[in-house]
């Protein structure tokens, strides 16, 4: 054979959900062990996928191994069904598995997510698959796998507490706002993937099965339904989640995670639900935020004045302003979008 020779192209065909059966078995075995040892990272022989590492190859492999013909799949990125990577992954499974897909959280049997947990409470028959970039919660404190593996084996998590406490000493806050470490079922400290810590409480005692796939780092881990998941904290600095001062500008939802949208170069901005399905469903039910089209409007809505900066931070204990304010009315100066952090 020489480099000059080029012959016939091989016929290329792919299995259901892309992965071959042996690979699925290998991943399935890892999933079963992950469920049996909540929060422990099971090494698995992640395959090279037809999408880049870091773009959801772990989640995609877990989904491909779990997915069946009767499943209804939902894929979200940043809480939204229509972000480009979510669209690409959903398209991948439509193409390779031909499964039904949905954007409705309640209709889905399997939800693959990057960076969010849906606002709608999950049910017992649902599976939530997280895409994980760095599965090791101790990685930024100790880069060596050989070391962190020992620390987990010895249940030696002092390093993590020291790090969190150093934040408090330096900043007065735990400076971790996403990928906030949790302790699962009283044993393993686990990285919840880069979800905002706002979502951490949703993991605790969740009726759905939560599976985590890290393709590049070749790890799978799991939280079974109804499992205790505790965000690490201190007695004098209890874990708190972000709370937004204003409701969603489109659906008026409160107590949800909002995206900040910059409207102009004069400081105009608005806050809207990160979970697009939740937001759309509320709007369909008639809820209207200050920037939404009026219910009766069939187009030609008037653009309201961009909202000024929302309320700034309040000290804990202050009741955050969560009531719907008059449409477009100024709300006073402030720097942060969050009303407060509240203990979960």
């Amino acid at each position: 054979m020489t480099s000059q020779h080029t012959g016939e192209m091989p016929a290329i065909s792919y299995n259901f959900a892309y992965l071959d059966e042996q690979t699925k078995r290998m991943i399935r075995r890892a999933i079963l062990k992950a469920i049996a040892i909540p929060g422990y990272q099971v090494p698995f022989a992640a395959r090279e996928m037809p999408m880049p590492y870091g773009w959801g190859t772990g989640g995609v492999q877990v989904t491909a191994a779990v997915l069946g013909p009767d499943d209804v799949l939902k894929v979200i990125d940043q809480g939204a069904d229509d972000t480009t990577n979510a669209v690409a992954i959903r398209g991948f499974f439509e193409k390779t598995a031909g499964v039904a897909t949905t954007t409705a959280t309640t209709e889905a049997t399997l939800i693959q997510t990057r960076h969010r947990i849906p606002e709608t409470k999950l049910s017992e028959n649902q599976i939530l698959v997280y895409q994980v970039p760095i599965p090791e919660p101790l990685r930024f404190l100790e880069p060596r796998e050989t070391e962190t593996r020992q620390l987990h084996a010895l249940e030696e998590y002092g390093l993590m507490h020291v790090k969190l406490y150093e934040d408090i000493a330096r900043h007065g806050h735990i400076a971790t706002t996403y990928a906030y470490p949790v302790e699962v079922a009283g044993r393993y400290v686990m990285d919840p993937s880069p979800i905002p810590k706002f979502d951490n409480p949703k993991m605790d005692d969740c009726p759905a099965l939560q599976l985590f796939g890290a393709g590049r780092e070749k790890r799978i881990y799991a939280i079974p339904p109804y499992t205790t998941v505790r965000s690490l904290d201190f007695e004098d600095h209890p874990f708190k989640v972000q709370r937004f001062a204003k409701p969603c500008a489109l659906c008026a939802a409160t107590g949800v995670y909002l995206d900040e949208v910059i409207l102009d170069d004069r400081g105009g901005r608005m806050f809207v639900c990160s979970d697009t399905d939740y937001c759309n469903a509320r709007q369909a039910e008639g809820h209207r935020g200050e920037m939404a089209a009026p219910v009766s409007s069939s187009g030609g809505a008037v653009l309201p004045h961009p909202t000024p900066l929302p309320h700034g931070e309040r000290e804990q204990g202050d009741a955050p302003s969560l009531t719907l304010t008059a449409r477009g009315a100024p709300e006073g100066a402030g720097e942060g979008p969050f009303g407060a952090e509240i203990a979960s």
Partner: peptide, 19 residues
Amino acid sequence: DPVFAAQGVFRAAMWALSR
């Protein structure tokens, strides 16, 4: 049907260990 049978049996085992 090896592909779908294996998937179905795995799902039963997965839910069995999850619950």
